[in-house]
Amino acid sequence: MSTIAEKKEKVSVPFDYNKYLRPNKLPHIWCPGCGHGIVLKALLRAIDRAGLEKDNICMVSGIGCSSRTPGYVDFNTLHTLHGRAMAFATGVKLAKPELKVIVITGDGDALAIGGNHFIHACRRNIDMTVLVMTNSTYGMTGGQYSPTTPLDAIATTSRYGNIEPPFDACEMARASGATFVARGTAYHTIELERTIHDALVHKGTSIVDVIDACPTYFGRANKYKSATHMMELIEKDGTVNVKQAEKLPPEKLEGKVLRGVLHKVERPEYCEQYENLIMQKAAAKK
């Protein structure tokens, strides 16, 4: 006979990340406290939730700290040129439309060096999920300021403060024609998992801008005490969920960044359009 204590006992098994990782490549190269690891974990949980097969996923990345991600995961992976990840991903998707293409890029990679590829992938609405890991710095090359570095922030190339206004990746994606635009943070990891899951199941270009912390360069230069301090100040206090924002007065939203699904529309997908066109022309020729 089982006791009450045994009946109440709930079995919570932690998520098995090893199923999707290449264990011999770990530990990863990211610095202590880097948010990229947290984002990777959220992505793996979202992939599991979406029920995607490992062999049906192709992960493409450019160059940078975040772009090291495909090295650690056991999918079809492609580590390509700086900023050109989305161009390569477009090629992969057109050649093998049955694959689920996931692009991992950083803010400098996607918005500065690969700015044009970013805009045109959004415009075409080709079915891929793009994770832009926004840590407001170029971590791999020594902490130069990037297109998302806030005004007055210190970087190795702006020792007296940054005078360039930052980009909003979500606004740009939306204006360029992406059909799913969302933002998450590494701090709100369960919400991020849900957002990435929604992006993965959406058909069309899905852009998820993920705010995470670079404690080594951005944090040290801007006098943040630790990775936790950065996560609390930038990610927790600096953002507000889009649903909560509807109920808040405008003065409380000042200086806050919205997170959650910001834009979602349905539009014909590029590969389908391409396939349809070929079929039509082939039928007309007969």
């Binding site: 006992e9 709930k10 079995v11 919570s12 098994v13 932690p14 998520f15 990340y17 990782l21 770990l26 530990p27 990863h28 990211w30 202590p32 406290g33 880097c34 948010g35 990229h36 690891g37 947290i38 974990k41 590494a186 701090y187 990891t189 369960i190």
Partner: peptide, 19 residues
């Protein structure tokens, strides 16, 4: 309390809580 926050936010795949 098995809240798993350490597991969720560990960037290094280094900690997991088993029941």
């Amino acid at each position: 309390t098995r809240c798993q926050l350490c597991d969720l936010r560990c960037p290094d795949f280094a900690i997991q809580v088993f029941d």
